[in-house]
Design a protein around this nucleic acid. Structure first.
Lengths: 343, 343
DNA sequence: AGCCCCCTGTTAACCGGTAAAGCTGTAATT
DNA sequence: AATTACAGCTTTACCGGTTAACAGGGGGCT
């Protein structure tokens, strides 16, 4: 009971197998220098003794770590709510796991805390590199972390991510596609409920949205910046629908807000999609469980995460990979979009 | 540009401050043995040089690690969908962060992989302890990990978690409360859509549900075991509603399935809550964004996670804490429950 | 003056691996 | 037979901290 406390080390294995520490190390790292017979004997002993090399000691001497860091800076309750993150993380994991690498996760309150955390992690040699998300315009992390010299991938448009290799989706094109689709259905007053204005991709979408609306000669579009959560999504929807010139279609920046918007529409007596079309973003499973199901700009978040992890490995291996663009979110029409009323 | 590569170590700091490595170590660990003046000088130099102690080296020599592990064994797509996990993780984080401890996360495919992972993590001294979730009846992790001697907290009923200190909610009482509530509304045919039968807490709820139904003299209850995701939740709901003796109320084991169930009900022409009452579990924000809002057995998952982390720290500090019961989920009536039709 | 003590610091031995350099014995080459 | 080549190990010096043991020096006390 209560573990002997004496943990077995490479020395024990070496002694038991009748070889030196060095031989055990060579064997376990599949390096030449030990015969097949000896290698097998060493493995047998290791299994018998229940030994695994100490990652700590290994990384101290080899200067390598098998951990990558991810700091998320969003209010805790939002993280729980948004399917995006877990999907993204599971995508990252799928790539990390096959290289027996682990993910170090931490939630932080603000960017300063995030920068401090990365400094601690990197200087403390706890991580080999990091994944940076949620870029803002003139993000303070770009200079700070670049100064650190820490390898990292940035999730966001290259314009925002500075010196870090970027992985991103073409939000501008996707936004344009969304607007064109709704316009093709006859909608002339289209509104958008976006994320926080200081978030880089929100800004990109806002611009693309306005540009496309102008280009198609639609009526001046109303866009509302929110905090990404369901309350703000609901409020924004209410605001839009109460206006005299209420829109006949609304595009949301994530699916949480779209679902909340659908609730508000129902509550206010609008029928989706007959009176009002709704178009979500990200397209998690959430869009498929509501009634009516939500049309969305869909986007394989799991693969996105996987691609990010792959690029990070390239960076860690010194492969100088440029930016990687992941497939543009594409329209997945479902039950929440239909021709504009009276068309 | 491109980081000098030369990372600063304790030796550099010591040299620059004109003291020995030992002095720097003492200063940074706030141990007696250095004067206030020297301590400050050392800190100043460390700041100037941008040094932070190497966690790797530190844990190699001090035999301590500031990382705890969490392996999740659920299909990736479900993880993304279920708000539970992120909420739970953010609760854990809130406690870890204040002790500057990080969370090592990994998704695994099955229990064998999970056991192997913990062995690797523990023997490799990567983690100080672990958080175990999703216990099954006769869970193979109990003997395997107990043999490892790894400190851990178990999330689940003590009957299932064996030798590990447990943190759990009283699912039996909560289930009973749910049934009593619906019975009080006049429902006589109540069904339940549960999680996988081999999951420990599903089994507990199943039993409690059947017991309470019998105790109240309600009609024989139909319970369906599913895989926790929205598709199975929808299918189970369809099955229940197509039966000749369809229930007038359904209890779901998580909110995903409840939302899916609401969709199915609408699609089949039932009005919630007039024709059919629905009661969810876990009560994430998801229950508040649907229309009508979902009544739920609510449960502060964030606090649950925090409590789990706290107990883990107790274990790590040798405090022999018994099992901790977290407040029983309590009924939060919203728009999806109402008196049975004709009452 | 002599002694002891405490405060401040140094030294050196670890922690458990990795990796380069060194050392065998045997087989191949000349 | 002598030289070389090389597979197969061993030795040893790190990696960057922690920590116990030890040293110098000033002040208080007798």
């Amino acid at each position: 009971m209560s573990g002997t406390g004496e943990r077995v080390t490479i020395k024990d294995v070496a002694a038991r197998a009748g070889v030196s520490k060095g031989a055990v190390s060579l064997a376990f790292n599949h390096k030449p220098g030990v015969s097949e017979a000896t290698r097998e004997r060493i493995f047998a002993v290791a299994r018998e003794l229940g030994w695994a090399p100490s990652a700590t000691a290994r990384s101290l001497s080899s200067q390598r770590v098998d951990i990558v860091g991810l700091a998320l800076c969003r209010p805790a309750r939002l993280l729980g709510l948004e399917p995006f993150y877990m999907d993204f993380i599971s995508g990252i994991e799928s790539v990390l796991a096959e290289r027996s690498c682990s993910l170090l996760l931490r939630l932080v309150r603000d960017l300063d805390e995030e920068i401090a955390l990365y400094q601690e992690w990197w200087r403390g040699r706890m991580i080999a590199g990091a994944i940076l998300v949620d870029f803002r315009e003139d993000d303070p992390r770009v200079p700070a972390l670049h100064r650190l010299g820490m390898p990292a991938v940035a999730v966001g448009h290259p314009r925002l991510t500075g010196t870090f290799p970027a992985v991103w989706t073409d939000d501008a094109s996707a936004t344009a596609e969304a607007v064109r689709y709704l316009a093709a259905l006859g909608h002339r007053r289209i509104a958008r409920v976006g994320g926080p204005a200081d978030l880089g991709h929100s800004a990109i979408r806002t611009r693309a949205f306005a540009d496309t609306v102008r280009e198609l000669g639609l009526e001046e579009a109303r866009q509302i910046a929110t905090g990404f959560d369901e309350k703000e999504g609901a409020r924004a929807t209410r605001t839009l629908l109460l206006a005299a010139d209420r829109p006949t279609a609304i595009v949301y920046d994530n699916d949480i807000m779209a679902v909340a918007g659908a609730g508000v529409a129902a509550e206010m007596g609008f029928t989706v999609p007959d009176d009002l079309s709704l178009l979500a973003w990200d397209d998690s499973q959430l869009c498929r469980i509501t009634h009516p199901t939500l049309s969305a700009m869909s986007h394989d978040v799991h693969h996105f995460g996987a691609e990010v992890a792959r690029v990070l490995f390239d960076v860690l291996n010194g492969v100088h990979t440029g930016g990687h663009q992941v497939p543009t979110p594409s329209l997945t029409p479902r039950g929440s979009t239909a021709p504009a009323p009276g068309v």
